[in-house]
């Protein structure tokens, strides 16, 4: 089992390495000359050469990649092209903001989705299940910005319960911060809850169809006991995977939501950089998102291995 876990973690690291190479290739090598596209057509050849040297573009691709990777591993993402500021200075607080928003949304979403997912599965085909199913379907179909603006229109413009812009800075007190990001958190909760609910329901249903659950019913156990003792312990592993994966989705889902609420997170930073074609920032954001996503995916698989009774109690 230890071997499997180590193998899975190794695979995660390898994936991250490959992804970093692809990101570098995509943003630095393929577009051709970054310098001329930044300076525009009016640049003199001397200016171009100087700028290239400044960016290190006169080095061969491989050594540029290695230098960049070395920097990233030490928390040095380079300098933003547009404002010449150190990217890490800008990125770190934004990353904290993004995690705060995602964590808040997860805190709202987890109990609702897992609870109702299990309930819907246990009451399959009944009213609870159908209503939960239709609601989840509708939530999944809503674009993030629709939900976001609907909430803004109702709860901050027509009734001023919450601020419409989730502007926070590093010295915003905690209570105010929570209040400011409530609307974006609710927006994300709605979307993620729907996904998680449906997946949880399906995982539990798969277990409810097994012969050992039938056997438990035939032993005369109550429905409650069958669910808590026989179904849920075996559904735990898939449900935990569902949760881990949806957390990953949360961190990524922020991109649109942050833009709706102009929340100073990594997603907004990245969109900003894309519109300004600020390549080092795009890279940095890409790597950050990739690491979070791959880490959570790896974690999900590791948990699945740990929770497997056959691997936990080898013969």
């Amino acid at each position: 089992m230890i071997r499997l876990i180590l193998m899975r973690i190794g695979l995660g690291l390898l994936t991250l390495f490959v992804v970093s190479a692809v990101i570098f290739l995509l943003t630095q090598i393929l577009p051709g000359d970054v310098a001329s596209s930044v300076l525009g057509q009016n640049a003199t050849p001397e200016n171009l050469a100087a700028f290239r040297h400044e960016l290190g573009l006169d080095q061969p691709a491989l050594s540029r990649y290695l230098t960049w990777l070395w920097g990233v591993l030490h928390g040095d993402f380079g300098v933003a092209l547009t404002n010449k500021r150190d990217i890490i200075q800008e990125l770190a607080p934004r990353f904290r903001n993004t995690l705060f928003l995602a964590g808040y949304a997860a805190l709202l979403a987890l109990p609702i989705s897992v609870g109702f997912g299990i309930l819907a599965a246990v009451r399959e085909g009944r009213l609870t299940d159908r209503v939960a199913n239709i609601l989840a379907l509708i939530c999944i179909s809503m674009p993030e910005f629709f939900v976001g603006y609907l909430l803004i229109l109702n709860f901050s413009v027509n009734h001023e319960y919450f601020p419409s812009l989730a502007t926070v800075s590093s010295d915003t007190p905690f209570g105010e911060r929570v209040w400011a990001v409530t609307l974006p958190a609710i927006t994300m909760t709605l979307l993620v809850t729907a996904h998680m609910l449906r997946m949880t329901r399906n995982s539990v249903l798969a277990i409810m169809s097994t012969p050992y659950v039938e056997m438990a019913f035939l032993k005369g156990l109550t429905r409650g006991r069958v669910v808590t003792r026989h179904a849920l312990p075996n559904a735990a592993s898939p449900i935990i995977s569902v949760i881990a994966l949806n957390l990953a989705y949360l961190v990524v889902g922020v991109v649109v939501v942050e833009n709706v609420f102009t929340y100073p997170g990594v997603g907004q930073y990245m969109i900003d950089a894309v519109t300004k074609r600020d390549v080092p920032v795009i890279e940095a954001c890409g790597i950050v998102f990739a690491s979070v996503f791959i880490t959570l995916n790896t974690l999900a698989d590791v948990l699945a291995i740990v929770l497997n009774p056959r691997l936990r109690h080898p013969r």
Binding site: Y212, L218, R229, H230
Partner: peptide
């Protein structure tokens, strides 16, 4: 009915491997 099951009338299934809860 539930009190009868398991107590007065019991069941032996075809597949033992599938009829036992793997985590108990």
């Amino acid at each position: 009915r539930r009190h009868m099951r398991g107590k007065s009338i019991a069941y032996i299934a075809q597949s033992a491997a599938a009829s036992f809860n793997p985590s108990m």
